[in-house]
Nucleic acid binder design. Structure first.
Length: 488
RNA sequence: GACCUUUUCGUCUAGUGGUUAGGACAUCGGCCUUUCACGCCGGUAACGGGGGUUCGAGUCCCCCAAAGGUCGCCA
């Protein structure tokens, strides 16, 4: 691996969304390239014309750019191995040329079977609990018959001819040596009847032509890889290193999928998850650095990453841990930085402008895992919620409705006189009031906080809430509290 | 059904024949505290099962079980 120039690729099919499992595959491929001062290539695998989605490729560009997984070659940035879009490569006749070479060499053959015949065959196999395998009906066609079919314009596919006996084995960098009996391998379709290559063929041709040294992909390709190697051998091409990665799971049974929602990169970002935290988390799903470290920036990941740290078993995506990791990133921010990131979410909850955003930020900073967490915490700011007088009863704070009323009555005139409505000064003022009155400050602060927020839990104490909503509103809410308690 | 793969605390994992089986998240308890949170301290918690090999097995071998993957003119 030292003498060759490492080249890896990310080869998504444009499905219109970036799944976190996909993102992890891209990250590993990128890390292997960067770690080895190699090249990271983006290739678009759009050979399924029926599943084309508008704008899907742009989403891939955007996500890679946003996450910092920059590619050195690709459809948008060019490179010496283009085109980088398979449909364009197909139009250039690349795949057909190689498929025909295979036919000439006897490693592939044309198949004119109809879908109906194939379906019947499959059904028959299933009924007999056999592995579905093509019966090679067209392998024995004579040259004349083939020509006749061709002349008649009968659609055909090109199939890879598997060896009849023996075994094929290969080495995977994470799974080790895998051996498969040739007799269990079906004759893969290489070229579809619409002339497009299948993934099975295109990936081999393109990886070779693009000089890919390390193929990073999901473990679902593990069992097909011997077939691909047979193709490399048929062409006399050098085989790449294989790095198959286990799937990311939703739970013990199900793979993470778009159906279960929230599996896409964009969803996490919209919730207020930081891209660095997501990348960091995803890197650790199925890979470990060999020590106890858990927080890594992208450059630090490049430094620490090694294929040998990739695990074989599937990993369950644990959003609780992602939240923790994201909160670690948030806590590491300065308060200004926090406010900058949180502001769009704060604005969703707070429409009024005459509030102290700095105090809001100070209160929220350590109470935020995803930025969207701030929204429900601020629902008392614009408008005092309806609340029950029972909120004033708190055993730990030694409050009841009676002493809370006394506290608010005591507080009101003092705060009316208080002009310097500063966050800290307010706190000391309240403490001072409590001391002079000879009562526990907790009683004062608790009842104050309840009166100002109408909530049991708030991002900050009584004086903080007062600083947030301002003097005028504070006094008004204290009046309301007094009124509520007097009705009891 | 056939073939391939996987299996250590609830979760992510460390561990490559001799460990009190380590860490992190979660959880529980305590401390701190103007509520909650943060922070700090501490606890509970795992080698899928059964056979071998060995003085000694989470680590090596075999069998079983469970789960995932493949068996598409999807990738």
């Amino acid at each position: 691996m030292s003498s060759e120039k490492v080249r890896t690729r990310f080869a998504p099919s444009p499905t219109g969304y970036m799944h976190v499992g996909n993102l992890r595959t891209a990250l590993y491929a990128w890390l292997i390239a960067r770690k080895n001062h190699g090249t990271f290539v983006l290739r678009i695998e759009d050979t399924d014309q029926e599943r084309k989605i508008e704008g899907a490729v742009d989403l891939i560009y955007r996500t890679l750019e946003e996450t910092g997984l920059d590619h050195d070659e690709g459809p948008d940035v060019g490179g010496d191995f283009g085109p980088y879009v398979q449909s364009e490569r197909m139009a250039a006749g690349i795949y057909m040329k190689y498929a025909e070479e295979l036919i000439e060499k006897g490693y592939a053959y044309r198949c004119f079977c109809t879908k109906e015949r194939l379906d019947d065959l499959r059904k028959h196999c299933e009924e007999n609990h056999e592995q579905t395998k093509y019966d090679r009906h067209c392998l024995s066609l004579s040259k004349e018959e083939i020509q006749k079919n061709l002349d008649a314009g009968i659609p055909y596919v090109i199939r890879q001819k598997m060896p009849d006996s023996g075994t094929t084995s290969f080495h995977d960098e994470v799974y080790g040596d895998i051996e498969v009996e040739n007799s269990t391998m079906d004759d893969l379709i290489l070229i579809k009847s619409d002339g497009y290559p299948t993934y099975n063929f295109a990936n081999v041709v393109d990886d070779h032509l693009m000089g890919i040294t390390h193929v990073v992909r999901g473990s679902e390709y593990l069992i097909s890889t011997p077939k691909y190697n047979l193709l490399y051998d048929a062409f006399g091409w050098e085989k790449p290193h294989y790095v198959h990665v286990s799937p990311v799971m939703r739970d013990a049974q199900r793979k993470l999928s778009k159906r279960d929602g929230d599996a896409s990169y964009a969803d996490f970002i919209n919730k207020g998850c930081l891209k660095d935290a997501l990348l960091n988390y995803v890197a650790l799903l199925g890979w470990n650095p060999g020590n106890d470290r858990e927080i890594f920036t992208l450059p630090e990941l490049i430094e620490a990453f090694d294929i040998s740290g990739i695990g074989k078993s599937p990993a369950i995506f644990d959003e609780v841990k992602l939240r923790w990791l994201n909160s670690e990133y948030i806590r590491a921010m300065s308060q200004d930085e926090f406010l900058k990131h949180a502001m769009p979410f704060i604005k969703q909850a707070v429409k009024r402008e005459d509030v102290n955003f700095d105090v809001i930020a100070a209160g929220l900073h350590k109470r935020t895992e995803y930025f969207s967490d701030v929204i429900p915490q601020l629902d008392f700011v614009d408008k005092l919620p309806e609340y029950s007088a029972d909120l004033y009863i708190n055993k730990k704070m030694k409050t009841d409705k009676e002493n809370s009323l006394q506290a608010l009555l005591l507080l009101k005139p003092e705060l009316e006189k208080f002009e310097d409505w500063d966050h800290e000064k307010l706190y000391y003022k309240v403490v001072d009031i409590a001391e002079k009155a000879g009562i526990n400050k907790k009683v004062l602060l608790w009842s104050m906080r309840v009166a100002l927020s109408g909530k049991e839990l708030t991002p900050g104490g009584g004086s903080d809430i007062a600083a947030i909503i301002g003097k005028e509103d504070s006094l008004r809410r204290i009046d309301k509290g007094i009124e509520l308690l007097q009705q009891q």
